[in-house]
Simulated scan of single mutants.
Amino acid sequence: MNRFLEEVREMPCALRRLADYYAGEGHRNLQRFAEIADGCGEIIFAGMGSSESAPLAILPGLSAAGVKGAHGGSIGIRIADAGEWLHYGTAAAPSALAVLVSQSGESFETRALAERGFVSSYVAITNNEHSSLAARANLTLPLCAGDEASVSNKTYANTLAVLYLLSAVLRRKPIEAALEELRSTADRLHALDECAVEAAAQSMAQTEALAFVGRGPAYAAARQCALTFIEGAKMLCAAFSGGAFRHGPVEALGPRLGLVVLAPSGKTQRLVERLASDAAASQARVVCVSDGLPSAIPGVMALCLPPALNEELFPIAVSGLQNLLLYHLCLARGLEPGVLIHCEKITACE
Rank of each mutant, 00 (worst) to 15 (best):
F4M: 14
L5H: 10
E7Y: 04
V8M: 05
V8G: 03
M11E: 15
M11V: 10
L15V: 11
L15I: 10
D20Q: 13
Y22L: 03
R32C: 06
G39M: 04
E42Q: 11
S50P: 01
L62W: 13
G66S: 09
G69D: 10
A70W: 05
H71L: 13
G72R: 13
G73S: 07
G76Y: 09
G76V: 01
I77P: 01
R78N: 15
I79V: 12
A82F: 04
A82G: 08
H87S: 09
T90W: 10
T90Q: 14
A91K: 15
A93W: 08
A93T: 12
P94R: 09
V99Y: 10
L100S: 09
L100K: 10
S104D: 11
G105Y: 02
E106M: 03
S107N: 14
R111C: 11
A114Y: 12
A114G: 07
S120Y: 00
Y122M: 07
H130Q: 15
H130P: 01
S132H: 10
L133E: 08
A134I: 00
N138H: 13
L141E: 04
P142A: 14
P142K: 11
G146N: 06
A149C: 09
S150L: 08
V151C: 02
S152M: 15
S152G: 14
K154I: 00
T155F: 01
Y156N: 05
L165Y: 06
R171E: 15
R172F: 01
E176S: 12
A178P: 01
A178Q: 09
E181R: 09
E181Y: 03
R183C: 04
L189H: 04
A201L: 06
A201K: 05
T207N: 11
T207S: 14
G214E: 06
A218H: 08
Y219H: 12
Q224V: 13
A226G: 06
L227M: 14
T228W: 02
T228D: 08
A233L: 12
L236S: 09
C237Y: 05
A239G: 02
F240C: 02
F245D: 02
P249Y: 06
P249L: 02
E251T: 14
A252M: 15
R256I: 00
L257Q: 08
V260G: 06
G266R: 07
G266S: 11
L271K: 12
S277D: 15
D278A: 13
A280R: 00
S282D: 10
Q283P: 00
V286F: 07
V289F: 06
D291M: 08
D291G: 07
S295A: 14
I297K: 02
P298S: 00
P298Y: 01
G299Q: 04
G299R: 00
M301G: 06
C304K: 15
C304Y: 08
L305F: 03
P306H: 10
A308L: 08
E311H: 07
Q322F: 13
L329H: 04
L335D: 13
P337I: 11
G338F: 04
V339I: 15
E344G: 01
T347H: 15
E350P: 00
E350A: 13
